[in-house]
Computed example of a mutant assay.
Amino acid sequence: MAILIIFTIILFYVGQFIERLPSRFIAYVFNSLLFVGLLYCFLDLTYTADWGMYYLFFKREETSTDPVFYWLTLIFKKGLNLQYTELYQFHIFLIISLYYFFISRFTKNIFFIFLAYLILDNVHLANQIRYYMGFPILMSGFYFLFYKKKYILSIICIILSILCHSGLSFLLVCIPVYYFVPAKKFYTYILSFSLLVFLVTFYIYNSTLGEILSHYGGYFNAGSSFLGGLFNAIPYILFTGFLYLETFFLLKKNPEIVEDPQFRFLNKIAFFPIIFIPASFLIQVIGHRYVMPFSFIWMLYYYIFFIKNQNPKVKLGRFIILCGIVFISAMFIYIIPGYLFPGNHFMEEFLEMIKSSDNLKGMID
């Protein structure tokens, strides 16, 4: 609890400081400090939930894993004569760099956006290194495709992301949704699609089809109670519901903003993962993979259109609101489950990760 409070306070005050002093140098200093701090925290880890699996992949030079991880295994193991620890550290360095790259396309205040995101999703990012290296590459691919219209660069990013983790291929449904769903009916269509995905997931979950999908069969078998899945989705519902209400009033006040290419891009990408929220009630990993990673887009979207260019009084209030939403969401992820359920998965994994680090374990000793 103390860690969450400290991070939230830092997030609020440094975000305010960077925003109030429009100096790129100051932003660069704080962003660099965060980058170094994150490397200090993450590179020293020697435990994640999937560490043993990835170590076996590395040791056996497993060809059945995703291509990028296999190719990097050969480079690090045979080409550079390094161990899995160095390969893990390379993934973490590259993941953070890729997120920095994407966020920097829209704002210099990377510190605020990325730290807010990490408060919610650090366990997954540190653990699922194939997926989380591919995800920001895919988002960059969407950025080049939808926003910059650089199609060749977009295709390269999209292909590379899927080579990092084949599960990212499900997110390619964003392309037809982005292009063919009209802006005025976007939210209605998204909710309709979410019902369809829920029904398909319900059918798969209650049939043998999940076993046929060998790569994902384990995930379909690893379901949850409906109420447990609904509780797990509270942060998604809270955040997207909050963003929808804010967007509703923004569009009433300023309807012409839909013509802004930046708004159109971030708005559609931010609300796209709603498609997967109802399905996550049945299978929690759907939310972990296809909803929660988008939370950094939620931070970015709200910051750009509801905080960045506002007068100081409004800006202060909205900083406080966003930090409050982040804190409440984090409570539902890390704290409240410990009082309601026999186990508290995210807190347990978070603490185990900290204990594995010589740099961090003093925080909980």
Rank of each mutant, 00 (worst) to 15 (best):
156 I>C: 05
156 I>L: 14
157 C>S: 13
157 C>F: 14
159 I>V: 15
160 L>S: 15
161 S>K: 08
162 I>N: 10
162 I>R: 00
163 L>P: 02
165 H>E: 10
167 G>W: 04
167 G>D: 11
168 L>W: 03
168 L>H: 05
172 L>C: 09
172 L>W: 05
175 I>A: 02
176 P>A: 09
176 P>N: 09
177 V>R: 09
178 Y>A: 11
178 Y>M: 10
179 Y>R: 13
180 F>G: 07
182 P>C: 01
182 P>G: 03
182 P>K: 03
183 A>R: 11
183 A>G: 00
183 A>D: 09
185 K>H: 09
185 K>F: 12
186 F>V: 07
187 Y>M: 15
191 L>V: 15
191 L>A: 13
191 L>W: 04
192 S>V: 13
192 S>F: 14
193 F>V: 03
193 F>Y: 06
195 L>Y: 05
196 L>A: 10
198 F>Y: 12
198 F>G: 00
199 L>S: 12
200 V>L: 12
200 V>A: 06
200 V>H: 02
200 V>Q: 05
202 F>S: 00
203 Y>S: 08
204 I>T: 06
205 Y>G: 01
205 Y>S: 11
207 S>W: 02
207 S>K: 06
208 T>H: 11
208 T>Q: 14
210 G>P: 03
211 E>N: 15
211 E>M: 15
212 I>G: 04
215 H>Y: 14
216 Y>V: 14
217 G>F: 04
217 G>N: 05
218 G>E: 07
220 F>L: 03
221 N>A: 11
221 N>R: 12
222 A>K: 03
222 A>R: 04
222 A>D: 07
223 G>E: 02
223 G>K: 11
226 F>K: 02
226 F>D: 08
227 L>T: 08
229 G>D: 12
229 G>P: 04
231 F>W: 14
232 N>T: 08
232 N>I: 04
233 A>E: 14
233 A>C: 12
233 A>D: 14
234 I>H: 10
235 P>C: 05
235 P>K: 10
236 Y>E: 07
236 Y>R: 01
236 Y>P: 00
238 L>Q: 12
240 T>R: 01
240 T>L: 13
241 G>V: 01
244 Y>G: 03
245 L>S: 07
245 L>N: 05
246 E>M: 02
246 E>K: 15
246 E>A: 13
248 F>A: 08
249 F>W: 11
249 F>V: 09
249 F>D: 04
250 L>A: 00
251 L>Q: 11
252 K>T: 06
253 K>L: 06
253 K>R: 12
254 N>S: 11
254 N>T: 13
254 N>W: 08
257 I>F: 08
258 V>I: 14
258 V>F: 05
258 V>Q: 09
259 E>L: 14
260 D>G: 06
261 P>W: 04
264 R>W: 01
264 R>V: 07
264 R>Q: 13
265 F>A: 03
266 L>S: 03
269 I>M: 15
269 I>H: 00
272 F>N: 14
275 I>D: 07
275 I>M: 10
277 I>W: 02
278 P>Y: 04
278 P>F: 02
278 P>A: 07
279 A>Y: 01
279 A>G: 06
280 S>M: 03
281 F>V: 04
282 L>P: 01
282 L>S: 01
283 I>L: 12
284 Q>G: 10
285 V>P: 04
286 I>S: 00
287 G>L: 01
287 G>R: 03
290 Y>H: 09
292 M>S: 14
292 M>N: 12
293 P>W: 07
293 P>N: 01
297 I>V: 15
298 W>S: 06
